[in-house]
Computed example of a mutant assay.
Amino acid sequence: MMFDRGIELKTPEQITTMRAAGLVVGRTLELLRREVRAGMTTAELDAMAHEHIRSQGATSNFLGYGAHGPAGAGGFAGVICTSVNDEVVHGVPGSRVLRDGDIISIDCGAIVDGWHGDAAITVAIGGVPPEVSALLEVTEDSMWAGIAAAALGGRVGDISHAIETAVDAAGDFGIVEGYTGHGIGSQMHQPPDVPNYGKPRRGPKLVQGLALAVEPMVTLGSAATRTLADDWTVVTNDGSWAAHFENTFTLTPTGTWVLTALDGGRERLAALGVPYGGH
């Protein structure tokens, strides 16, 4: 069912299928969090994710994304994005060897019966300086602040404003503005955009059946970015390191349901005083 501005609303049954896709994504990310280590290539990490998604009876929504032309030229070459250190998003898995002290954003998606899930984590490999640990914490906390700000009858801008407020309150960090969260459902990327900054009570209304992927990208320096020659990998202009966290969630009559979190978001939502709306 289509809502205002081409926004897709899902039935409860379709949301349940999105939860199945979200669990595949969540389990894959937890596997990769456990297994990623220095000496591994990003291609090896991608192969592990590919096998796990397939073993769950799901398919990847990243592999081949953006393909065009009769041969599908230009499609994304992995089932995960692997963005290391100053790479913000859309890093392509390949021969890069991970080192102790690196951080890596792992972005993953899956499809179950035509419905999508999408989430990301950033992981430190070995020891990192305190400011890098703070970057990861601030980015993840701002994602949860955005999700917690969502309520039926509210607006997308409430999410955006909460993310910006959380990052600004934490110190001198940059918020990447050129890439946003998004609607999600029968396609991975749908209206509406969910910016990581903005004013509250603006934008499309938050209604039952809407599913959103919230994904702040935060830097230790300037938030200005550029895209590398592979036409995918986005890096900071000044070489400062970046973190990226993402979850897919929906709102039900009883509260918030984080479809890509293994516990549905219960723990973090409870800590923020937000009612859980899953089952």
Rank of each mutant, 00 (worst) to 15 (best):
G94L: 10
T42M: 09
D46W: 09
L31F: 00
V89C: 07
V89H: 05
A58D: 13
A58F: 04
L29A: 02
V89I: 15
T82Y: 05
M40H: 05
H68M: 13
E44N: 00
R33I: 09
I80V: 15
A67W: 09
H68E: 11
F62Y: 09
A49K: 02
G69V: 10
Y65K: 14
F62C: 04
E87A: 15
E44D: 08
Q56H: 02
R37T: 13
R54T: 06
I80Q: 01
L45M: 15
L32T: 11
L98H: 07
G72S: 05
H90T: 13
E44R: 12
A73I: 05
V36E: 04
T41R: 09
D86S: 09
G57A: 06
R96F: 08
R33Y: 10
R33G: 06
S95F: 07
S60M: 09
T42H: 07
V36K: 07
L63R: 12
D46G: 02
A67H: 03
D46R: 03
V36G: 03
R54Y: 06
A58M: 05
F62I: 10
M40C: 15
S83W: 02
N85I: 01
L45R: 11
S83D: 08
L31I: 11
T82C: 13
A73G: 10
E87K: 08
A73F: 12
T82V: 12
F76Y: 13
A47G: 14
G72A: 09
T42S: 08
E51W: 13
